[in-house]
Amino acid sequence: GGVGMATGAYVPSKAVWLPAMKAKGLEISGTFARRGGAIHMDVSLTNKAMSVMTDFAIQFNKNSFGLAPAAPLQVLTPLSPNQTVEVSLPLSTNGPVMKMEPLNNLQVAVKNNIDVFYFSCQYPISMLFVEDGRMDRQLFLGTWKDIPSDSETQFQIKDCHLSADAVCNKLQGSNVFTVARRTADAQELLYLSLKLTNSIWVLAELRVQSANPNHTLSVRCRAPEVSQYVCQSFELILRN
C-alpha cells in the first residue's frame, strides 16, 4: 500500500537498499511509484552516524529503460543524528540506455559530505506502463497473429480468487487495459494491452475460470525479453 493508492496502482512497500553499516551511518530505504503519469523514487534517508550529514546528491548508472533523476535530490536541511527525511525524487526516462541483468536493475550512487556510496535496487516494471496503453482492437488482432506463438510466454497466476471484473479493474489501475473479453468453454478470456515508456507494446491473454483459482497468462511482445517481467508484474498487481 502507501503513496500510490490514490490511483490504484501497485506500489511495493519500502525496502532497505543501503544499510547504515555499509554507508558510514547513512541508511537508505525506498520504493518506486507512478503518480499522475510521472515516475517517482520515494526514499527515506536516515542518519545513524554521530555527526550531521549534508550535501546530498544522487546519480544513476545507465539502465534498461533510461531512468534518470529529473531533479536534484532535495534534502533542504542538514540531517542530524537519528533523523530521517522522506524525499520523493521525480524520474525521467530520457537517460542513457544500457540493457541490465535483471532488466529492471538500477545502480545508484548517493553522495553526502562524508563519502560516495553505491547500491543496486530493482524497480517494478509496472511503473513503466503508460496511460495511453490501450491498443486499438484491430491492431491488437493483427499484432497478436504477427508474433509467432513459439515466442509466447506462459505463466500461471495461482490461487487468485478475483473475478474477471475485479481482475480487469485491478489491472487498469496499473495501466493494463482490457481490449476485449470473451467467454469460451467455461473460461473467460481477457485480451489485454499495455505500453512501456520506451513505446514497446505488450499484448496478453488472461484465462480466468470461475471454478479454478489458477489463471493462465499468455504474453506476446516483439521484445520477448520483457515478457517474463510483465508476467511477474501482473501477479504482483493482482495480489496487492
Partner: peptide, 20 residues
C-alpha cells in the same frame, strides 16, 4: 460494441485458444 468484424474475430480467437 460496433459490429465491424472485429467482434467476430475476437470470438474466433477466444474459441481457438480455449479449444486448441
Amino acid at each position: 460494441e460496433l459490429d465491424d468484424g472485429l467482434d467476430e474475430a475476437f470470438s474466433r480467437l477466444a474459441e481457438c485458444r480455449a479449444n486448441p
